[in-house]
Design a protein around this nucleic acid. Structure first.
Lengths: 106, 106
DNA sequence: CCTCATACATAGGTTTTCTATGTATAGAAT
DNA sequence: ATTCTATACATAGAAAACCTATGTATGAGG
């Protein structure tokens, strides 16, 4: 299933739990959603680069198992954006559910 | 707030309550979401035309207050698509909420 | 040695939605 | 009468978000 505008929110949220690298962020999102939100590398990496360019996340290199990995950590601005997007998700999903009230959601 | 991929679902759902015309569909969505999902005509009408082209909805003209309005009704295919999209919304929003579990959603 | 999972990246295109604008009518207000 | 507002439909053009496809490279397990 596609991310429908929530990819930034999900990435920021995963990073709020601690620094992480791209591949692992994607795996976390996929696993914690039971495979429903699956990672697309062509979506993931450009989004990470974009968030970095906007100063929402910050990259640093870290060696792991003899390989250099590109880790990201949330910045202050990123944390503020996360709060905003959490709020937006809450309002958006409530709004949709308000309209669908009465529909049988399985 | 933008529709984030749920506009088709919402239109089909409103039409499942009975035939309606574009302007009224948009108003219903706006009102039932307390103004959070507001209608954009440049989004609404092309989407209606698209759904009509795909045979999901069917247009008919109807006079009202001396004016001719373009009403739409759900087709069988449209109803099937609605079921599918309801299911998708349910799975998608659950998946996002699963990941955000632990975040304080206001 | 081969394959798979890991890991990052970019090019190019599609879908969805937005902004902006145009046209026209009915009803209410001044 | 005229002006304003809400109703009603429409299209052009652009932007944002996301996808598909592909390329490169390494480490681990068989």
């Amino acid at each position: 299933m596609n991310f429908r505008g929530s990819l930034t929110l999900l990435i920021l949220y995963v990073l709020s739990k601690g620094p992480n690298h791209g591949y692992q962020i994607a795996k976390a999102i996929k696993q914690q959603s039971q495979g429903i939100l699956d990672f697309k590398e062509g979506t993931l990496y450009p989004t990470l680069h974009g968030l970095e360019g906007q100063g929402m996340i910050q990259a640093f290199e870290q060696a792991e198992n003899g390989r250099t990995r590109r880790y990201y950590r949330l910045t202050q601005d990123g944390r503020a954006l996360l709060e905003e997007e959490l709020d937006e998700w809450s309002r958006y999903s409530s709004a949709v559910n308000d309209i669908l009230k009465g529909a049988q959601l399985s």
